[in-house]
């Protein structure tokens, strides 16, 4: 069992850090570089940048932000949003990313997951899944475009397929919970995490350290992404880490 990772998630609409509810209704929060550096100093295990408008190559795009971030942030950086090809991924790595996350491009062409894994290794290939609970049935459907576009794919099946194709990690965002601060979709995280042999990052809904402890203990999450609890200063990574360790969960102890 690896240690549970605490990941600061920064959704970006360049040049701003933004935050929404259910991945929509976006509010500007500030300069992503400043926030990333603060989270690194607080002891984040990783930084996750998601470009919500997929503006990879535009001026002052996410890649410029990533490049600046690598100057003073020395934990792994994952970049997602708008990566459609191995060339895009290569550009992200050159800008300083350590891993890339793909969603839409993988839905449209699943073999891309294999191509990326072969080029960059599974450990750098994160499959990002936006999950929404079915309204009138059990289970969850995978979505793209910040939870707007249906894919018709069952989340658990898609996650398993992603692993067969070569992804080394799954970023699992609950669109239902995202931005609500009401806690994670525990059933969703557990369903995926127990179905695949690769680590699963739970994302969406964290409003307190108790939510994190819950999704690790009851949802079997391998890592937890958190956003507005940090952005709005409702808590900080040091306190969250302490509460998590006190609950008996194995985390990196940052001195």
């Amino acid at each position: 069992m690896s240690r549970i990772r605490l990941i600061a998630r920064l959704d970006v609409k360049a040049p701003n850090l933004i935050k929404g509810i259910h991945l929509e209704g976006l509010r500007k929060i500030g300069d992503p570089n400043e926030f990333a550096r603060r989270y690194y100093e607080q002891g984040a295990d990783e930084i996750l940048y998601m470009d919500i408008v997929a503006s990879l190559y535009q001026r002052n795009s996410l890649l410029d932000i990533v490049e600046r971030t690598t100057r003073d942030v020395f934990v792994p950086i994952t970049v997602g949003g708008g990566i459609r090809s191995t060339e895009d991924a290569r550009a992200a790595f050159r800008a300083g990313a350590d891993k890339v996350a793909i969603n839409t491009a993988a839905i449209h062409r699943p073999e891309l997951v294999s191509e990326m894994a072969r080029s960059f290794g599974s450990q750098a290939m994160v499959l990002s899944i936006e999950a929404k609970r079915h309204a009138h049935a059990a289970g969850w459907e995978a979505f793209t475009d910040n939870g707007r576009e249906h894919t018709g794919r069952d989340v658990v099946e898609w996650a398993k397929r992603g692993v067969e194709l070569g992804c080394g990690e799954i970023l699992l965002t609950s669109v239902d919970q995202e931005g609500t601060r009401a806690g994670f979709d525990i059933d969703l995280v557990k369903a995926v995490s127990t179905a695949v042999p690769v680590p699963v990052i739970a994302s969406g809904g964290m409003g307190s350290a108790e939510h994190l402890i819950d999704v690790v203990n009851n949802g079997c999450a391998d890592a937890v992404a958190m956003a507005d609890i940090l952005h709005y200063g409702r808590s900080d990574l040091a306190s969250i880490r302490k509460a998590t360790a006190n609950a008996g969960i194995d985390v990196r102890i940052v001195e």
Binding site: R3, P76, D98, K190, N217, C220, A245, G248, V251
Partner: peptide
């Protein structure tokens, strides 16, 4: 990786048993 700035840490005690976790570290 990230050898340039290793962050000291202490070895935390093994996690308690969880229904989904590997039983031994």
């Amino acid at each position: 990786r990230h050898i340039a700035s290793p962050i000291p840490s202490t070895v935390a005690s093994a996690s308690p048993l969880r229904s989904c976790a590997a039983i031994s570290p």
